[in-house]
Design a protein around this nucleic acid. Structure first.
Lengths: 144, 144
DNA sequence: CAGAATCCGACGCGATACTG
DNA sequence: CAGTATCGCGTCGGATTCTG
């Protein structure tokens, strides 16, 4: 999502029907959280943190709160000592499963192509600046 | 994607097979760009900017460059005066179509539920702090 | 245990102005 | 036309510390 918080395009950008969903479902941690919850079922806070691996409690709380608000996960608080809180996927969150499957399949099939494309692009960018300027483009900021 | 740039989880987060795809395909502007290109075919820079509506040339260039590097779009430079550049979806980019359809369908069917969940959550957050502390949580930073 | 509070850095993005 | 350069803001995310 962008700096503006919610995505509410006023221009023709609204023609893209999936922009809102991106804001809701796809951030750095929402998919790993959803995935962990989907794969291992209801989990406690620390267990969830352990399952995901590197996420800090602060960020985990933030994402979890947002996802709870959006109705993707359900938080259950057990008033005990020590306190126990459990998170699980809601029905709404579960409805994303087929979507994630499609995504996983695409990844399985095409991630290699992306990596190959990157290599080709970077090689071309590093190799052609000497000859003729086939296309005037200073430098192609690479990330991967 | 996160501030760290590329997503390369070293921990159990790697168990989430779609995290890399999120980094590649889903940002604030990649989906609108892909959508516009998919809907209207090959387009020139300014036309693309107009179709999307609010994107600035700087950001459009950045995203386009990244997507070109990832092999999602193809840039064609025509050495003329004035210069003419055209962008179109690659085969790899087109392979995302079914994914986008699934996403659009989910949005159509469930976006209302998310909005409803938000209202319910916000109302509950604004209404229950007075009675008994059912779940000790200071304030639920709302966004929408 | 399940967070909250605080400080901090890095991007993504927006607005504006300028160029080959 | 198709970008590039510069500036600044806001948000996300990491690290650390503290609490009921």
């Amino acid at each position: 999502m962008g700096p503006g918080g919610g995505a509410e395009p006023v221009g023709p950008a609204q023609a893209c029907p999936i922009a809102p969903v991106v804001d809701i479902v796809f951030s750095r941690w929402t998919t790993p959280i959803l995935w962990a919850l989907h794969a291992h079922g209801r989990q406690r806070f620390v267990e969830l943190q352990r399952l995901i691996g590197t996420i800090t409690p602060k960020v985990l709380t933030q994402r979890l709160r947002q996802m709870e608000r959006d109705g993707l996960v359900v938080r259950t608080y057990h008033p005990e000592v020590p306190p126990r809180v459990e998170y699980e996927i809601s029905d709404l969150g579960s409805s994303l499963a087929p979507l994630f499957s499609t995504l996983a399949e695409w990844s399985e099939a095409n991630l290699g192509r992306v990596e190959q494309a990157r290599r080709t692009f970077d090689d071309a960018a590093a190799g052609t600046p000497a000859p003729g300027p086939g296309a005037p483009r200073p430098r192609p900021d690479r990330r991967g």
